[in-house]
Simulated assay, not measured.
Amino acid sequence: MSDKRPPGTLGLDLRSDGSRRCGLCGDYRKMTKAHVPPQKAGNRDEVVSAPLRVHDNKRSYGRALKGGMWFRGLCGECNSLAGARYDSAYADFAHRLLTYVRVRRHLHLPAPDPAPPVRLAPGRVARSVLMGMFATTPHLRQMFPGLANDLRDERPHITMPDGAVLRMALYSSPRTRLASMYSGLRVIGQRQYYLMFSEVYFRPLAWVLTPNDSRGREDLGSSPLDMWAVADEWLQYGDDATSIDLRDLCRRGVPTVHRHPLHQGADEWVEAFDSSTMAVLEGQIPR
């Protein structure tokens, strides 16, 4: 499949139509639009998105499109599986959080401690997130084939593979972002690093699949993800667990982030990525 973007543009082209290997099952098939997060969670219609590009050492955006945040990263069968089994649970969780946030602001309630008092189906939510991440980051199948197979085979209890951890935070910004396989190092001010395999920023939630081994990174400083809640154990919950209190899942708390870490003091960060595994899509939720 030819790449019709400007010559020298870096990053994967995951929005073009055609056939390639599905990010989840690995079969060579025609790809379909995988909305991440699900359309039912508000990711549709007036949400505008555009691919981030780097050409001749300059950052720019491709053509902006309405219709949400999506990549053609899953075949129709895998995309339908996520939609039929898990996406409604994710949408329900997101809507409950948005309702809670609106009520808290209206009544001037204190910040939630340790987390918002909302209920969710944790196993279904985590599966929806991860299947979306395999759509945005096809290279994940090569890195974690067991996880891909467990999700595809609908295993009732899944263990996160060694080498990865799924983190989440509340996210308040209307700015949206999908990205895969890159890293950042803060070289001005507080020493920090940001490493991830895949990320989803879409109000009211942000998710990052990141390496779980920090050995050898002590000289890089801390990571802004260290304070995020860990959702690995959510995969141990089956489809029958549909009403678990978030406070019981995140006893150490869930932080609220107001922007992507690299958007805060962007000139202070140096970013690194491999154009064969990296893709970035940014957008906006209408106010």
Results as ranks from 00 to 15, higher is better:
37 P>K: 12
177 R>S: 01
8 G>V: 07
234 W>S: 13
11 G>Q: 14
52 L>N: 10
282 E>Y: 04
110 P>K: 09
124 R>I: 01
76 G>M: 02
127 R>K: 08
104 R>V: 04
46 E>H: 03
97 L>K: 10
58 K>P: 00
103 V>L: 03
225 L>Q: 15
179 A>D: 13
88 S>N: 14
106 H>R: 15
262 L>H: 07
225 L>H: 14
18 G>F: 04
133 M>R: 06
231 A>S: 08
142 Q>P: 01
92 D>P: 00
276 S>V: 02
189 G>I: 01
266 A>D: 03
114 P>C: 12
241 A>G: 04
116 P>L: 06
194 Y>L: 15
125 V>A: 00
49 S>V: 11
187 V>T: 12
61 Y>D: 03
223 S>K: 12
272 A>R: 11
262 L>R: 13
163 G>R: 05
93 F>C: 10
183 S>R: 09
78 C>R: 09
199 E>C: 11
254 V>F: 06
31 M>E: 06
103 V>A: 00
186 R>A: 02
150 D>L: 03
263 H>N: 08
271 E>I: 09
264 Q>F: 03
245 D>M: 07
24 L>V: 05
237 Y>T: 05
150 D>N: 10
164 A>D: 06
64 A>G: 10
177 R>H: 01
28 Y>L: 08
95 H>K: 14
238 G>E: 05
202 F>L: 15
27 D>S: 09
276 S>H: 05
249 L>M: 13
145 P>Y: 13
160 M>I: 13
16 S>R: 13
144 F>G: 08
259 R>E: 10
44 R>V: 06
112 P>R: 08
201 Y>F: 15
12 L>H: 13
179 A>S: 15
244 I>S: 07
216 G>H: 06
121 A>P: 00
285 I>R: 13
149 N>M: 04
158 I>L: 11
279 A>F: 14
86 Y>S: 05
235 L>H: 12
176 T>Q: 12
177 R>G: 00
100 Y>P: 03
152 R>W: 01
208 V>K: 07
79 N>W: 06
28 Y>G: 04
282 E>L: 11
56 D>L: 07
137 T>K: 04
234 W>C: 15
260 H>I: 04
100 Y>H: 14
57 N>L: 05
29 R>L: 14
167 R>G: 00
68 G>W: 02
137 T>F: 02
109 L>I: 04
12 L>N: 11
253 G>P: 15
45 D>E: 05
89 A>S: 14
